[in-house]
Each structure stands twice: as C-alpha cells, then as structure tokens.
Write a protein that binds this DNA or RNA. Structure first.
Lengths: 218, 218
DNA sequence: TTGGGAATACCAAGTTCTGGGTATATTTGA
DNA sequence: TCAAATATACCCAGAACTTGGTATTCCCAA
C-alpha cells in the first residue's frame, strides 16, 4: 500500500481527496496537514510517507518552499502538487524544486489516482495542457543562435574572456602576444556591439555565444 | 480529418505507422518521406499538413535540425518526434526546437493515436517516463542558491555590474559617489571570490546571483 | 593567381579597474 | 540599548582595459 500525506488548508477539499485515496485499493492516506511546518515535524521524527500531495497556497510557508524543505529532510519522498494555479512561474518553480507531479484541482478522482500510480511507477505526472506549457518554457530558453560573424580564433579567445582571464593570461595560453589578443578582443567588441568586458561576458553567456553556456544536459 | 506526414527512413516502419493512422477515423496520412529536404520542398510549395511525425536519425539533415527548418517555413505545423532515442540531450534539443510531442518507437498504435489527438487538442504529448526526465532537467538547472552573504545594496550594484555598467555609471544611477560604489564592488569581489570584472559577471550569471539571470519565465 | 578574410603584432593615450588602506554615519538585531 | 553589520566616502599606485591607429603574413576561395 502506498502511504500518502496531504497538505491542504481547505479542510473540506482535503477530506474529499483523502476519501478518494482511501477508497482506492492501492493507497492509504493516514495524515492530513493544513501547513508545511507540521509536516516537517513529522518527517523529523522519522515518520515518512511514500508520496505527499501538496497545495501551493498555504498559510505560513507556501507549497513551493515546502517542497524544498521536505526534500531537504528526506529526498526520497515523492511530491505531487495539487493546486488551482496553472501559471508558468508556479509550474516552473514546483518542478525545479523537485515536484514529480503537477495536478490542477479540477482533476477527477481517476486523474488523481492515475497521477499517484504514475509516480509510484517511477514516472512524472503532468497533463497534456500543462505539458504544453512546460514545452514552451524550453523553447523560450532556446539560445538565440546569433553568431555575429565571430571567427574560430575569436571564439576561442571569447571563451577565455568569459572565464575571467586577462589579456596577458590568454596570450600565454595561446602562445601569442598580448597585442594580438588585444586586437582580437577589439574585433569581438566591435562585432557583438559592446564596449566593456562585463558587457561582453554578460552578452556572451546569455546569448549562448560560449560553449559552456548557461546550463548543460548531462 | 487531421492531415499527417511521416518522416522516417525505415520504409517498413513508416508503412506500419501510415497504416495505423489511416485505419483511425480521425487522421489521414497522405505523404511519407525518407528525408527532411523533401519535406521542406513540399512545404515551400504551400502544401502543408497539420502534424508531422518525424524520426531523429535520418539521412542528411537529422530530425532535430529538421524541426528547426520546418518551423522556419511554417511555424503552425505541429511536430511529434518518434524515435528510439530516450537520452536527455535528444529530448532537450527536440523540445527546445519546438517539438510538441515525443514518442518512443516501442509505443503502441493506441499510444501513437492518443499522442496525435493530444496535440490536435492543443496539448503536448509525453509519457510518464520521459516526463520524469524532463522534470529532472529542470531540477538540474536549478540555481545553486549560494548567496555568499551579499547584502541588499551589494546585490543592487551587482545587477548593474552584470549589465556591463562602469563604477561611474552606477554611482550616477544610485546617487552615491564612485568611491562608495567602488567599495561595494571590492566587498562583492571578496565575498564571491573573484578578482576580475569578467569573472564576477560570469559567476553571477551562472550561479543565479542576479535577478534577471539565464532565462526568465514570462 | 590573386584579392580578401583571418591571424598575427605593435604603438600610444586616456580611462577604468584592482587591492591596499582609513573613517564615519546609519541600521539592525540580540 | 549597544555592538555588529551595513552603507557611505575618500586616497593612491599599479595593473588592466578601451580605442584609435598601422602593418605583415598566411590561407582560401574565386
């Protein structure tokens, strides 16, 4: 039997969910909480469920912060968010902090139980509409692919600059003279339209001009 | 009727998918392609489907590049990837380039038709296992949350520095003296362990020390 | 084969940064 | 309330950056 806890300050709704869970033949809900702090206390005592269903809008610590706090105590606990919010910000934050499911409160009993089953089976649960939003977040963060006509050598030097290296250091690394590096730097500035080192680094990282940019998938 | 095109260099598999689609009562598949270039030609002629099912490993231009090229011609076309690859890199690239569904080749006929229906209904299709991977990408890119004990004022100045502004410019903006800004900069350098402006900017952006970091959700 | 892009190298002046200080108000938390 | 943290401000010397030049060599594509 999958042990489930609920964090939900609307007692009536909380009871409904509990009933749905307890009427299923695979899950049990032993505890209902109205705030995150009480959950943290229980977890600290070593008491632990398999899955926590949590609201986001909660008195005191909100659900997003709650995910972080809960995972800090026990990162094995799977968390499914159950909320009315469907904005990108909330979805993004919940997933970033380690949620493994995101349900809207208009979900049916079947959908809720299905989401639980998915998470038990090692998957992540999100409906097609919310998935569309998640997908669009990825497209939004896509690199702009501007190249500004940076040459190979310039690109090499750009990478060193972004690392915080000085012109003299780069000259030593590339076995050329500081003047040469300086000329390349000058040309890079002209090409990407900046006139400070910091502006260069900022633009290079944000526009993905450097190989080791923002984040990488490994 | 939803018009579907298939891009798949394995003719036998392509035919199977076509049969599945044509046996359904909502979709038709009129064209099968074995490479992306032929698809681009058709699109350029103004001929257009509702959804394209595409493989990733294709002769010539691969499926990921294909998504980009297709969207460049007609961004209304929905694209579902149908592949054997389930690595983060491929999934990430496909979604970033605008795919609205990601199916593995071991999917059943029902799963394929369901994915198509989801996309037609304006959602995005991904199974629970792959969703888990997508979710983990978000957690992976999570900001490290190191603060280095940066104060409010320092943080404000840090933001200007990352914008490429000079000490003098910042002094004017914040209505303080350049010396004061310089002192703050000095303290920031000490706190986050850097000794060049570029190193500062690089670290600040990559570790999410600035508000407008990497990417934002709007 | 030849013109142009790319990489190399140097000069110089003015600006900005870096790191070493010192010092005083103001705010804030214990 | 009182010490600590924060924000303010200044000095200075050496290093690094920025911007304006000029010039040669190398390689590649037309």
């Amino acid at each position: 039997m999958t042990k489930i806890w609920i964090i939900e300050d609307n007692i009536a709704y909380s009871h409904i969910i509990r009933t749905i869970i307890n009427q299923s033949d695979c899950c049990t809900c032993e505890y209902e909480f109205t705030n995150v702090v009480d959950v943290l206390k229980q977890l600290s005592k070593g008491n632990t469920p398999d899955i926590i269903l949590t609201d986001i809008n909660l008195p005191g610590m909100n659900g997003i912060e709650g995910i972080k706090a809960i995972k800090a105590i026990n990162k094995e606990v799977e968390i499914i968010v159950l909320t009315v919010f469907d904005d990108n910000e909330k979805i993004f934050d919940a997933i970033c902090n380690g949620a493994n499911g995101y349900l809207l409160k208009n979900s049916s009993a079947e959908e809720i139980l299905e989401a639980i089953q998915i998470v038990v089976d090692g998957g992540s649960s999100i409906n097609a509409g919310l998935a569309r939003k998640v997908f669009s977040m990825f497209t939004a963060m896509k690199k702009t692919e501007k190249s500004y006509g940076i040459t190979k050598r310039e690109s090499e030097i750009l990478n060193y600059l972004v690392d915080g290296k000085t012109v003299n250091e780069i000259a030593k690394i590339t076995f050329t003279s500081p003047q040469t590096v300086q000329t390349h730097v000058k040309n890079i500035y002209y090409k990407i339209h900046v006139n400070t080192r910091s502006g260069l680094v900022s633009k290079a990282i944000r526009e993905g001009l450097v190989t080791k940019g923002g984040f990488t998938m490994n």
